[in-house]
Nucleic acid binder design. Structure first.
Lengths: 135, 135
DNA sequence: CTATATGCAAATAGTTTGCACGGAT
DNA sequence: ATCCGTGCAAACTATTTGCATATAG
């Protein structure tokens, strides 16, 4: 879906600021606030920090954007998408997405605890292929 | 291991402040900074906030304490222990630990990506048994 | 006794809010 | 014309640091 449509669908006006924020997230895949601020201030110098904060928060409320937290790292933002886990390279710090089935684990938890599982948040620390065998 | 021994092992002096912080974490299982501050200021009113920050950071560095982050929640601290996942009740907000085998998933990731998996961080949003069927 | 830890205050960083202006419908 | 969004400044919250004093080993 285009970013304009995405905004309209969520009853938000398609302002240049919002489009710029979404473009930046799309481009980065995963971006910290600092990343976003740096990239945006190059493309759009007048876009203020409070606008970034306000819009990220709004988009998170509306589930257009997800906030992802990692131990020992700043928080990251990403455009909301299919459920996936994060693979975080401990060497180059790159974050990849990975699709995985978690039904079996959820079933196991429900069976052993009596709880009802609703969702999950999963990340793996890895050394990525490229860092394992540099060209 | 006693907290005194734990501190000695990590080359930290066993001050009353540090013991108080560890006792609080032990007692709570999982505690936010706010929890810690509140509980501690009752038991040990002169223990300063900067001491809490300094010591938590030190203990995290030394892997005595882990910082756990959840979406839409404050950060939690816990005494480092065996690998486990967190089950977070979305109703009563309680956090339980759960032991789980993740080798199979790690193997699957390594096979499909070529990455080397080192560790993982996993949490499940649940409705806990007690909230499902109140007595 | 000596090195480390603490408390306090100040500095710094991160985030939110109020308000007047500007642009879109 | 009205409403919503933005930028700016100020407020507020969170975290770290410098330094003099206290204390564990």
């Amino acid at each position: 879906m285009s970013h304009i449509k995405l905004l309209k669908t969520n009853e938000l006006k398609a302002t240049p600021q919002r489009l710029c924020i979404l473009d930046t997230l799309r481009e980065c895949g995963h971006a910290t606030l600092e990343d976003i601020q740096k990239i945006i201030s190059a493309k759009f110098p007048t876009l203020s920090l409070s606008t970034i904060y306000r819009n990220l928060n709004e988009m998170i409320q509306k589930d257009m954007v997800s906030e992802v937290k990692f131990a020992n790292k700043k928080d990251y933002f990403e455009i909301a998408k299919e459920k996936h886990v994060h693979l975080v390279c401990q060497k180059c710090k790159k974050i990849e997405d990975f699709e995985i089935k978690t039904d079996e684990i959820s079933r196991q938890i429900e069976e052993q605890t009596g709880d009802k599982v609703l969702a999950n948040t999963i990340s793996f620390d890895v050394i990525c292929k490229d860092c394992l065998s540099p060209k």
